[in-house]
Amino acid sequence: MIYLVRKLGAIALDLIEGLGRMGMFFFRVIRGVGRPPGKYLSTLKQVQFIGTKSFFVIGFTAAFTGMVLGLQGYYTLSKFGSEGLLGSAVGLSLIRELGPVLTALMVTGRAGSAMCAEIGIMRIEEQIDALECMAVDPHSYLITPKLIAGLIALPLLTAFCDVLGIFGGYLIGVQLLGVSGGAFMDGLTSSVVWDDVYMGIVKSFCFAVLMIWICTYKGYYAGLDEGNFGPEEVSWATTQAVVYASISILVSDYIITSILL
């Protein structure tokens, strides 16, 4: 019984310590924005990394999700005889919800895991120690460019995802199932307002921060809790990073939606 209480206390303490460490980590990354060296080039490289890693996956996911939405939407809407609303149904669900979430999840799987592994390897090979010993802040040097790049790349990829998804829905709804193209586009343009787009953008920014934060944090502290610095710790950290990032994206999606609605 006492053992249980003690265990519980230890877990709680670990949790609080971990949260504090995560907060400090984030603070240092933000602080690194203004610190030398210049980050244009490294940020650009990261944007390219995130972009190329995720472009095709997101394109594929978006197109097929749009197509499924077209099919399902048509099926549901035709029960009420309102197939004309297909455009707005597809557009709204993609722009407000599916676009940002799917993009964030895909980027987590493709680029986030790679980032976590990259940082984790730098940790176990003493490269992060080496940076510290050169009086170079590893947060500012390694993580900050990734965060800025995430904030640039994710909204762009989300927009790309939205467009391709709507195109997929259009393809199925109009070309295959015979909804009038005019009605589709009309429903889309009339029902999607700035607030919807705004919500999508807010979400993609939040998801970018969460994803980069969790993935780099997990890599940065890979093996530090276990006290071992081997390849297993990196793979473990990567798995954890993807799981935690995905969960927090979904949870925060709900929170943001409930706030902005």
């Binding site: 030398p36 730098m122 003493e126 490269q127 120690d129 080496a130 940076l131 010993c133 050169m134 009086a135």
Partner: peptide, 30 residues
């Protein structure tokens, strides 16, 4: 730390940079 140099056991070179870029890191920052 600006006054010290450290050689780690494995060398701890940055994988993503060439050898000369590795050496340039502290010079570029400081």
């Amino acid at each position: 730390r600006r006054r010290i140099g450290v050689l780690f056991q494995s060398g701890a070179l940055f994988n993503s940079l060439t050898v000369s870029q590795n050496i340039a890191v502290p010079l570029k920052v400081h």
